[in-house]
Nucleic acid binder design. Sequence first.
RNA 1: GCGCUCGUAGCUCAGCGGAUAGAGCAACGGACUUCUAAUCCGUCGGUCGCAGGUUCGAAUCCUGCCGGGCGCGCCA
Length: 594
Amino acid sequence: MLQRATSASRGPPLKLCFPPGGSTPAGAEAATGPTRSVFSSMGSTMNLESLLHDRLEPALEAVAGHPVDPAVRASPHADFQSGAALALARELGRPPREIAADVAAKADLTGIAEVAVSGPGFLNLTVTDDLIGRALRAAAADARLGVAPAAEPERIVVDYSSPNAAKEMHVGHLRSTIIGDALARTLEWLGHDVIRVNHLGDWGTPFGMLVEHLIDLGGDGGGDHSIGDLTTFYQAARAKFDTDDGFRTRARLRVVALQSGDPLSQQLWRKLVAQSQRYLLDSYARLGVTLGPDDFAGESRYQDDLAGIVTGLGEKGLLAESDGALCVFPAGFTGRDGAPLPLIVRKADGGFGYAATDLAALRHRVGKLGADRLFYVVGAPQRIHFQMVFAVAREAGWLPDEVTAEHIGFGSILGADGKMLKTRAGGTIRLAGLLDEAVARASAPAIGIGAIKYADLSGDRRGDYVFDWDRMLASTGNTGPYLQYAYARIRSLFRRAGSGPGPVTVTEPAERALAFALLGFEPAVRAAAGLAQPHRLAGYLHDLAVAFSAFYERCPVLRAGSEVRASRLGLADLTARTLHTGMSLLGIEALDEI
RNA sequence: GCGCUCGUAGCUCAGCGGAUAGAGCAACGGACUUCUAAUCCGUCGGUCGCAGGUUCGAAUCCUGCCGGGCGCGCCA
């Protein structure tokens, strides 16, 4: 049985769109024409950076004589800045400030931004309040908040969660499940064709042991087993396997029987797996993870393909025998003493290694599922393994150049002591127990679950992170509860308002700051998806919530005069919708009331 | 030994080629007859592990070193 997600699940999907009326923010009507025309030069509606980029580009080209990236960025010195003139100074043999001034004069920014040369030669861009207002009104009129779906959708297979059948989920499965789900949700929302794959560990030696144990207990083992029973069941089988030579021998024979299609073995195995799947789906539901019954694609599914994998590799001349095992030695991988590193496809005992299963799964995903991209959300320690699998698949011709395969690795969850998170007794922490505690510590289940998920998603996945209840449940800081509170506050505002949002016009600094935060949604989502880094979106949502809180402190909404009030309600509504959408992309539930 | 990865404020983390490095916690000081204070505002706090290099410009890219974590054949 696998331990694919060394430290590593799809449940009730959170709604991505707002139901008409009811408990969600108002004004989420379908996007239509007129207000969009202003932004027709941009790929999409809401991205000010893109707009400025497109306006500066021709001016830069005119000055430099060739295309130049304007490199528009948010800046503390203005709304945006471009440092492109600095990079051109040497090439053109002119002072950067002079180049910047030239570009400023040639750029068509009328009605869009004020431009000024600053410092060593930066172009400082200050966007007009009018443009901000138009951009916000366009976003407000669009159910997708101005984010256009992918022009060329890709079929993306996301392999995540991947727990073991017949065992309980534990902390080790948490990250793959949460990160993978956030990626799947985000890519799907951006218009891609996402295929979720739950590579269940439902095959291999341990199942010989488990089936044999089930037989020992009396044929089909009697009545219902809950997963708790399955856990003790597993432990009992394991103990017997470790201490009883006779049982160990029978277990090995049982594997052979199971794999050769013995009816009784198969029947009992199916029973174990089906029970595991029910338990897993319950866990996913509780976690708010979008993995469903159709997403299971266990290792067992590839059994009939393994022999073909080996012969295929043999025909291509890639196989080598080493210590009785059949291996591929892909170029560029070395281990101890610089010796070539093997990918073992068939073990010395004639059984197939996990590499064979991974290759078969990969071939299936490319050949049968028609994937353009493959994501494997699996812990960092397996990095080399996947690199080797990808390399071998390329050499074998199963992974064409136009298909990308990527290992989305992640760090470990550490305890306060900086070591892998364990119980005080040094045991494995059960996922169910962890969720129980989260719910017990929080004022609502969704807050506890959200806190755990957000803690996992708010930091760069590649690093380890320290699991700390107090920090993840804090109502302030970059946490799930902070986002949920900000959202609930806005919903409360609308319950009292008695009227809906109106057209937005920004004047106050806090309004302006909030507006900018709102307009940063698209870049944040695209960064999160493009880099497979959900923390980019998480960090954005936190910044947005902070900007809203500051706005909320300084700009009275309900007490304001009717036009200002309507505008501020417009800002609040767009904030709520952006938070709601962003949180749902991360798999965090947004509550109307806290 | 080789490889991968990470070293940023006392702690937990962002930033990953641009102008004085940002948050939260902790510490200290303010703002509650509240539009949910589960909030907000301010102060304090950093030779961005060390040393070179590339660049107009380096926390960010490259090299070396130091330190931590992980991996290196029949588990996944």
